[in-house]
Amino acid sequence: MATALQDRTAVRREGRPPAGSGAAPLERQHRRIFWPFAGPALLVYAVLFLAPIGYAAWTSLYKWDGMGAKQWRGLHNYQVLFGDPAFRTSLLNTLEILVVGGAITFAISLALTLVLREMRARLFARSVLFFPCLVNAMVFGIAAGFLFSPDGPVNTVLHWLGVAAPPKWLATDNLFPMIVATLVWTATGYYTAIIMAAVDQIPEYLYEAAELDGASAFQRFRHVTLPLAWDVISVCAVLWTVSSVKIFELILMYGGSSSNQPPVSTWNTAMYVYTEAFPQTSAPQLGMATAAALVSLVMVGVITLALRRLMRRTAVEY
């Protein structure tokens, strides 16, 4: 059925015209105005983004407290970084948020898409789903202490439901799963809203045709919704990758207090960078901090490229 559907609807997007020799007058015009238009933007980009990254890369080769003289360390900072159990934990946690958190978020988002498209009052349902994303993550960090305390509202409800021994939600071991769960909860509504916007654009007659062909709700999702919203989903995957690596305040709020950093078992690379750059009782280790930041930058870059490549499909027009 899928092929039939595609034959009827899909039109291959025309490829770009091959870059000509430049003989055409319009082409020459384009070339002439390229730099005057692109130049200022590139300059801003270079000054505000590339130069700081370059400076960070340079700093990562030194031991520097931000005040005194820099001491050359070469690649030793990176060696130390990968030898530091705290950094290895941070790296693993970052990947866990990215992969496990991402898989759960998108599984729920897509399942919601399946339901939301067909249900009544879907605009209302969508608003409700989107709401957690509007609330500052810090609020969750603070509210968790009240909601999940042993005699807090969550356990009270569980007690009514007959759960005699609810888990120790706020125990140190459960902090990281709680953080991931909160992230999934806030992110799901966000990605559902974006994916639903794409799904709304899919013409109704495709679903009608699929239904006439005898497709079930899941088959309609699998053969109509998914391929036609694929571009948006893949962009969402990239957005998640980039944003999940930068998560930071939630971890700080969940596990930290003013006199203690959050436990290392909950750190991600962003948290690691923070603790090296703003330690509580020692001079900043800016070399280590920038080295850690660069490692996570490279990691995001590689994962984003891999995702783009893996999720590349021929675009479908309708």
Binding site: D84, A86, T172, N260, P263, V264, S282
Partner: peptide
Amino acid sequence: VAGSYPTKVFNQNFLDLWH
């Protein structure tokens, strides 16, 4: 004691004992 020793060495181990 200063630096990252408390966070990276002491805190987690102590909490395991304390719990």
